[in-house]
Write a protein that binds this DNA or RNA. Sequence first.
DNA 1: TTACCGGTTAGAGTTTACTCCAAGTCAATA
DNA 2: TATTGACTTGGAGTAAACTCTAACCGGTAA
Lengths: 133, 133
Amino acid sequence: MTIAEVGKKYGLSADTLRYYERIGLIPSIRRAENGRRNYTEDDCNWVEFIRCMRNAGVKVGALVEYVALFQQGDSTHAKRKQILIEQQKQLTQKFNEIKDTLNRLNYKIENYDKRLVPVQRKLTPPNNERKFL
Amino acid sequence: MTIAEVGKKYGLSADTLRYYERIGLIPSIRRAENGRRNYTEDDCNWVEFIRCMRNAGVKVGALVEYVALFQQGDSTHAKRKQILIEQQKQLTQKFNEIKDTLNRLNYKIENYDKRLVPVQRKLTPPNNERKFL
DNA sequence: TTACCGGTTAGAGTTTACTCCAAGTCAATA
DNA sequence: TATTGACTTGGAGTAAACTCTAACCGGTAA
């Protein structure tokens, strides 16, 4: 596949795909005779994986490290697993922060038209807000 | 409260609090006779609200707009609600992306020691991965 | 043949959100 | 009295993650 096709498939710009390759976020892509990138299915799977992790907010640095270890082979197995566990931990925390903030936003929006309380009420910290969920 | 106290209370640096005030993310804080900031309880509630939204990833720009509208009074009520709804939408999307990525990470980690499948298996896209949850 | 399209590289520029710095003020303490 | 420490302002600097530009190349359509 060409860079444009892969970009379209995964919602990334060609610039971003080149950038990802340059910094080692995706393994180096084979070039055709004319020098153009030719993405294999495996390459696409990497792109998909990276996009998924990036969309969730996993840091580029962590993914670069993971990819580099992956390319060094089986001896890096334990280290790679540790990276995944660390990212899992961080994502879980972000997940909970977003959940709490969504509860708060939901409550605020629900009550935005029922002006039963003074305006300043909207600034009240979360432990004073009834939660749903 | 002093800037240091508020910073400590909410886990923000004094620099960040000044920055937030400068760009209008927090309403302007009254100064004492000596020129120093003196945070009221209302000010603290704003700080807490902003920190919560920022921790969840709500963009500074959206919050600046919200605060500005808030200060313009009741006539901006509908617009403010729209902003909250938009942020709710965006956070919900991020929430789901993180949830999916966590499922994927969990699965990957669970199976990282059972090497029942070739290494390349770790790159397989999500629809080929068994989900739990 | 010429013009355009879609690539290529190296490197510069942009955006977001802080974070740091310099120079100064004021109050308390050694 | 001197100095320490917490603050003030305006403005510069930084980190992360792209995003864009310039100059070039090779294949195709008019």
